[in-house]
Design a protein around this nucleic acid. Structure first.
Lengths: 141, 141
DNA sequence: ACTAACCATGGACCATTGTCAATGGTTTTG
DNA sequence: CAAAACCATTGACAATGGTCCATGGTTAGT
């Protein structure tokens, strides 16, 4: 298919597709039996764009997604780097999901508190604590 | 506490704290009985910075986090806008978590496939398909 | 007292992730 | 056929989220 159709089907702009392509996230060929310069995209490009969307939601940068796509398509070795990369991403994404969920709870609690005491403000909310469990050594250097 | 201590305790740079402050995400006062211009941060600023981190992980922009913080601290009305805002954020964050989780699965599957067929590449992976379901279109002219 | 370490302010600078506009060619369709 | 709609390429522009630097004042340790 051509870029316009892909754009419609994946719900992204043509410019975005071109941007991704420049960054190696997606590929296209030129129809050899046409003498124009129109690029042709495979069917699975739609899927690829959806994966890119998810990957971005998960916090990966374009550069990282490019690597992932490369890994995904890879045929040759470099298995070690690949494994390591994937492991790192898994850790990061997991962490992000945890933080997001924590924040989601906070949103819900805030909303509930607000519903409970509309004009009163929500000073009592102060009790809602995040529960990080990581940093914060109690004193200065 | 002063900015340096806060920076250490919350594990962000001083510049980032100042950046947040300029954008209304955090506040500080000047010690009235000191004649310097050093800013003093309350204890809970550490917590605030942690919440900001989570909110960012959840995909909120600085502007949105600022609104949330305002809501959180709010004393006056505007309950309707607040409720609506919170609801919208809840929907968005939930969606993001779903997408992230979907992508996380993909990472895991890719890793597994790679472990299974190191030199073979993972052509069979093609079967792993997401599961979106949207509509509409992006225009570009 | 002197120096290292800290602080404030302002503005320049940077990477990332696109978007837009100009220019010129191609295809489709009424 | 002629216009509308589509396509490619290039490069400028923009918003976001910081980071760095220069300058000058403050505090703390030795």
């Amino acid at each position: 298919m051509r870029i316009g159709e892909l754009a419609k089907r994946a719900d992204v702009s043509r410019d975005t597709i071109r941007f991704y392509e420049r960054h190696g996230l997606i590929r296209s060929d030129v129809d050899p039996k046409a003498d124009n310069s129109y690029r042709i995209y495979a069917e699975d490009a739609v899927l690829t764009l959806e994966v890119i969307r998810d990957a971005q939601a998960a916090g990966l940068s374009i550069a990282e997604i490019t690597v992932f796509m490369g890994q995904f398509m890879a045929q040759d070795g470099e298995t070690h780097d690949a494994q390591q990369f994937l492991e790192d991403r898994i850790t990061e994404v997991t962490t992000r999901i945890t933080a997001s969920t924590r924040f989601l709870d906070m949103l819900r609690q805030t909303k509930a508190a607000l519903a409970r005491a509309p004009q009163d403000g929500l000073r009592e909310m102060s009790k809602a604590k995040p529960d990080t469990g990581k940093k914060g050594q109690g004193s200065d250097t």
